[in-house]
Design a protein around this nucleic acid. Structure first.
Lengths: 214, 214
DNA sequence: ACCGGCCCTGACCGATGGGTCAATCCTGGG
DNA sequence: CCCAGGATTGACCCATCGGTCAGGGCCGGT
């Protein structure tokens, strides 16, 4: 909690080295499955050295997360024109976030559920594609009937499932204190509007050019 | 993988008992932190018995998740009128999902990141409210200027953050194969539209009537 | 009564891996 | 040249926990 240990320049490099190795392994195997000894091995140092730079495994993780958030924050701030109206700023912030996340996939992957406990990942993933394909069917149907503008259906699928799960999560966490009937209705409208409306928003999206995903 | 062991009626009750105890503890302490011995203690049985009903800790978890998903699926199906148009069905499915998740908070909490590794939860949560309050400020400003319809700002906040993170996640996972510039633009529009448009969608939302959540 | 197969117990095992430590190396300043 | 203290090592410690097992009770059928 108090001032961190004082390191020489070389020391800081080492620390950075460990951070990068950890980031890599956390992303590949998940936080739990990445052993400290692995991290050290990957960084080419002995296990004991880890504790010269970090008091605990969690603290390293925390440092990664904080760095990431801090950078994102600055990027967002930089992307928003101070003179613009709030909604524009919102849009700029959102765009910047998406770009930033894409540019730092490795970092952000750390936060994905799948990466936290590698063993549980399959269980949780299994079956979640069922919803996806259900929704996809509906979307495609709707597009065929002209109810939903053309564009990569996957985009809409992600949007719809994401909305439902986000609102659900927020409500469950007590962050969204709204009578359930109202919430359900609001989410329903939100989804409908989002899907049926933004006529040309997704217009020019490269429509998933066939086989190239794993 | 083959046929599960055959249980008497009493056996099934016991199993159900263990499932409920586990559900409870996973929700409270997180999957990792809930020890099998705890679960057994909570159910009032000896640890050895656990393995009479479940081959492993993960398998119990898997069973919980599957049950939950199965029920949700049926509920969704029941909520969608077969004769309705796709968009309506989409809306009905979304509403049903939100309601279902609310009615089974305990179950769904299992899937929340925070519950998987209790130790990491604080690290990940810390600072995430910063974004929320940023976005909130923008929303409130926009509402003041009439750019965004009135209604609980939190609802919009959740929607915006949820969208950004969902699309980000999908892209990162390779589920959304779209050039990043297009994606950023699309998400920007998606957010803007969602926030600025649904004039009366959130109209009658009880604006956070203070204290009534646990 | 006897048997078989559910059901239940709690001590025990074994691996795993985070964390410690005494000893050593290395480097720069005096 | 020598000392201080950062940097580094790898063997070691040990609490933890999922999983095992040998044994024993309960109950219904014959």
């Amino acid at each position: 909690m108090t001032g961190d240990r004082l390191h020489t320049e070389h020391g800081n490099e080492r620390k950075e080295q460990l951070l990068r190795a950890a980031e890599q392994l956390f992303t590949e195997r998940g936080y739990g499955a990445a052993r400290i000894s692995d991290i050290c091995a990957a960084a080419g140092v002995a296990k004991g050295l880890f504790y010269w730079y970090f008091p605990t495994k969690e603290s390293l993780f925390a440092e990664l997360v904080r760095t990431m958030r801090h950078q994102l924050r600055r990027t967002q701030a930089a992307a928003m024109e101070p003179s613009a109206d709030p909604v524009t700023r919102l849009r700029q912030g959102a765009e910047a976030s998406v770009r930033f996340m894409a540019a730092h996939q490795t970092y952000f992957a750390l936060l994905d559920v799948e990466r936290l406990d590698a063993a549980l990942a399959p269980v949780m993933r299994e079956g979640s594609d069922v919803y996806a394909s259900d929704v996809r069917r509906l979307i495609v149907d709707a597009q065929r009937q002209g109810l939903v503008p053309d564009g990569d259906p996957t985009f809409y699928v992600v949007g719809v499932l994401g909305a439902v799960s986000s609102f659900g999560h927020a409500h469950r966490a007590g962050r969204l204190q709204i009578p359930i009937d109202d919430l359900a209705a609001a989410v329903g409208r939100w989804v409908t509007d989002a899907v049926a409306r933004p006529a040309d928003a997704v217009r020019a999206l490269t429509p998933t050019t066939g086989a190239d995903a794993p």
